[in-house]
């Protein structure tokens, strides 16, 4: 589904990604871990097409097509979703209204008619219940006055409504108490399917207690320096990153 090959990217004048390669197949959950400043968020933003990053070499192929020339909204229409580390507040814009516009933009791209209002309402009520979100959240302004945990929950709620093919969750677990973490994890698990892939960017192993990854990668210095299965996460939790870094430096 997604193939990243020897990706180099700058933020301003600084090279952040230095030859990153990664392949994700449909149905898989990949976790990317790594120390601060290793390029985790940069990777997420480059994949989503954010301005301010320059890809200097390498390629990203998504569902067989070159992803990099596409605008952020085009990537969204093709089924890429980014759960933000710091979800943005948009005063005066109704949460539901944004979602409906987003959903219809994608339907339009795929030549489908706008979603029926009653059907849409049913979908968002179902998903809100799944995320244990109060109905009042639906009619509040996007993220305005939400607590940190509410914002993250709202991200996963949006993901559940938009049903992406590739969901990139950028530190969705940080700032969550254990109950919220469980809800967020349950939301992600409910969406796992053979057609959908997840890329979880996280600092902590504890999210992976609730969302079991197929692959765990360590990102450091702009490259993936070690990959393994879920046991790698436990090792990192127990021993920190130093041994991986040393191992990589020695290799």
């Amino acid at each position: 589904m997604l193939k990243i090959d020897n990706l180099h990217a700058n933020a301003g004048d600084t090279e952040i990604l230095k030859g990153l390669s990664l392949a994700i197949d449909a149905g898989e959950v990949h976790a990317i871990m790594g120390p601060n400043g290793s390029g985790k968020s940069t990777l997420a933003h480059v994949l989503a097409g954010r301005d301010g990053y320059e890809v200097t070499s390498g390629s990203v192929t998504y569902q067989g097509t070159d992803l990099l020339p596409l605008a952020p909204e085009e990537r969204a229409w093709h089924g890429i979703f980014l759960g933000f580390q710091y979800p943005i507040e948009i005063p005066g814009v109704n949460n539901t209204y944004l979602l409906k516009a987003a959903l219809n933009a994608r339907r339009k791209f795929h030549g489908e008619p706008e979603i029926d209002a009653a059907q849409f309402l049913r979908i968002i009520k179902d998903k809100a219940r799944m995320m244990k979100m109060d109905q009042s959240f639906l009619n509040r302004s996007v993220n305005e006055g939400f607590s940190g945990g509410e914002k993250k929950r709202n991200e996963v709620f949006q993901m559940a409504v938009l049903e992406p093919q590739l969901a990139i969750l950028d530190e969705t677990d940080s700032g969550l108490d254990i109950d919220a973490l469980k809800v967020v994890a349950a939301g992600v698990n409910a969406l796992r399917s053979k057609d959908r892939a997840f890329l979880l960017v996280t600092h902590y192993q504890r999210l992976l207690d609730y969302i079991e990854p197929d692959h765990v990668h360590v990102l450091a210095g702009g490259r993936i320096i070690k990959s393994g299965d879920k046991t790698l996460a436990h090792e990192l939790e127990a021993q920190g990153y130093d041994w991986v870094l040393r191992e990589a430096a020695g290799a």
Binding site: R50, E73, P87, I88, I90, L98, A102, A105, Q158
Partner: peptide, 11 residues
């Protein structure tokens, strides 16, 4: 804010 909306699929 713009990027957030565009990521969700708005032009």
């Amino acid at each position: 804010q713009l990027f957030y909306c565009r990521q969700r699929g708005l032009t």
